[in-house]
Amino acid sequence: MNEEELAAGMRAQRYFADEGLLTAVYLALTLGRPLLLEGEPGVGKTELAAVLARVLDRELLRLQCYEGLDAGQALYEWDYPKQLLHLRATEAGVGDVYREEFLLERPLLLSLRRPAVLLVDEVDRADSEFEAFLLEFLGDFQITIPELGTIRATEAPVVVLTSNRTRELHDALKRRCLYHWIPFPGAERERAIVRAHVPSIEADAADSLVRAVSGARRLDLLKRPGIAESVEWARGAAALAANGDPWPVALRRALGLLIKDEEDMALVNAHLDELIAP
């Protein structure tokens, strides 16, 4: 798949990548490198993996990271009850219980077995020790299981890691990846995104909504709204407008789809008239 075909496939999935992101994705696919995406929450990092899975016609495997995540939950575990039943079924009560049939495959191992897009989501939320478990996998697309040996990918998985930078990632992990920072989109691209996901919205209404979102992001908010919130705000306001509300009223009434904090809500409400003004 060349770069133009990749861009067309992503647009068909209503994902409008800028030139920098498109280049990063294309190079990651071409070179077989994991792609590490950082950026503000809500700029489309997680969605990119789902879009790639559809464009490439691969299964999406998701590993949601969190504090305390360990190798057993991400790589593999032994099915101890099944091993015990096997031992009880043998006459002598002994046998080889470290065979693949007793292996519970988790997302990392599964991605080595089948064509997949592996999403390692919010890797910064996991403990720093967890990154050490990832290094062999990211560097060589293989996993070493002491009882079985090394398992290598039959076909290199497409790997997307995301981070919101709640902590700094180790250099060893970054070196194994192609890195890209996703900023908030410009007005033109965000209008295209909104209108692709909410076809009923008029051009002028989309313009005013995008201006309001851009202005809100410049305020001193605890949580700046992302692209997903822009789209949901557009959906909600469009539904209210279809029911007879003037557009500015519909935007104000649907503001809870854009802003998710009480203090932020008060601040945006106080500035909303100027934010949506032509």
Rank of each mutant, 00 (worst) to 15 (best):
E202V: 03
H271T: 06
E131G: 10
V213Q: 06
F133G: 14
P246E: 10
G9Q: 05
R235G: 10
A212T: 07
A89L: 15
L27H: 13
V249G: 09
P81T: 14
F102M: 13
W233I: 02
A234I: 01
A49T: 07
E155S: 12
E168Y: 00
A228M: 12
V159G: 05
C65P: 03
E155P: 01
A234S: 06
G149K: 11
L6S: 09
A205G: 02
I182T: 06
R88P: 01
D245T: 05
G186A: 07
P248G: 07
I145R: 13
P81N: 14
K82W: 05
L52A: 06
M265F: 14
P115E: 12
A212K: 04
R54G: 00
R152V: 07
L29N: 10
V117G: 02
E5D: 14
A238Y: 02
L275A: 02
E38T: 15
A8C: 12
L37F: 01
I193K: 00
E202S: 14
A53S: 13
R11D: 07
F137I: 09
C65G: 05
S200H: 09
A50K: 15
P225G: 11
D273L: 10
R152T: 12
F102T: 14
E77M: 14
E5L: 14
E105M: 12
R99A: 13
A53T: 03
L169D: 08
A92S: 15
R235P: 01
A203W: 02
K223Q: 15
D124I: 13
L37C: 06
Q142D: 04
G42I: 03
R99L: 11
Q64T: 12
D204C: 02
T166K: 11
A17Y: 03
V194P: 04
A116G: 11
R62K: 13
A153N: 06
S128P: 14
G32S: 10
R253V: 15
A192E: 01
T90A: 15
E190H: 09
L222Q: 12
L27Y: 11
A7K: 13
D220W: 09
L219Y: 07
V160F: 00
G9S: 06
P248F: 04
Y98G: 10
G139A: 08
A254G: 08
E262L: 13
L103T: 10
R217C: 01
S214M: 15
V210L: 13
F137W: 05
P185D: 08
E47N: 02
A187F: 00
P225A: 11
A212V: 04
E147F: 02
A212Y: 00
D124M: 13
A74M: 08
K45E: 04
M1H: 14
H271P: 02
V213P: 01
R217Q: 10
A241G: 09
K223F: 07
